[in-house]
Design a protein around this nucleic acid. Sequence first.
DNA 1: TATTGTTATACTCTATAACTATA
DNA 2: TATAGTTATAGAGTATAACAATA
Lengths: 164, 164
Amino acid sequence: MSENALYEELMRQLSAVGSVRRDLGRIVPFGCSDGAATVLTLLGRHGAMRIGQLTELLGVNPSATSRHASHLAMLGWVDRTLDPADQRSRIVHLTPEGHEQLAELSDRRSQELAKRLTNWRDKDLHQLAHLLSRLRADFDDPGTGQHAYKAPSEDAHRARPPAA
Amino acid sequence: MSENALYEELMRQLSAVGSVRRDLGRIVPFGCSDGAATVLTLLGRHGAMRIGQLTELLGVNPSATSRHASHLAMLGWVDRTLDPADQRSRIVHLTPEGHEQLAELSDRRSQELAKRLTNWRDKDLHQLAHLLSRLRADFDDPGTGQHAYKAPSEDAHRARPPAA
DNA sequence: TATTGTTATACTCTATAACTATA
DNA sequence: TATAGTTATAGAGTATAACAATA
């Protein structure tokens, strides 16, 4: 069972990389928490969506998502409009100011990463992102060998929702 | 600057993988927190060491490390002996019971990973661990292109300190 | 009756700052 | 005076459970 060594090593690195996340998480728009900032980036990447979808992407409890969305709404960076298809849900979407804040946020975090990962090639960055994506997909749903990794689009850096 | 898309994708995946970490983090010995469990695994992997070294490996503030160590000491799973070379420091090391708890913890977490990552090859696991290690090393110290990744040893799964 | 969100509450983790003891 | 660690405190994140509104 020395197989375990590989799993243990992965767990340690998964744990240790938390410090990188925390460092990046300190780069936030004024008045915005890291959790709310994450919601902002998800809306920019995937477009407007309901709390439930955000919750799934975040991999957290709906209560956390709800609070982050409220926070962003209070800042005026998102609006929550009733879903015509299901009045229980509201669709969360970025406001113009939300777009601005997100663009600045993305730039600042990207610059920080670029500064620190000077010796990383695109290939490495992509591969790590890909493996992480696959890890989460398989972990959440061990059944399928496939997972829905989608390479970042050419437009992703604009932080605009894809034809929301 | 569509370069940013790669960084943004990496950030998103780094953030999203937190849910995997939280899931694994719920597997802990009774009475032990995830933070304390992490200290346990570090002691198992690297052997007895001072709070300062643990702090560096954890990538957190010394105060957090101190509290986890206290917690473990209270459980009787580690001892803290004065460092003969510097009386300000104490060396944290696993007790026999700490070893037992760690072994069980490692087994349980590994089994969980094995169950969920059935379609992962050793090569994939190793590569992801490697990239994560490199990410943290380069992020913390962008100067050097080298980093101190050490492949898991054959004995790592025994969770014994290497000739502590 | 089941589902989507929201809110209140509790627990854990981390950072900051003040403090003790030793180098 | 500088450093290693500890403790108290505060801020942020998530999960649980109870609740409201709609399907």
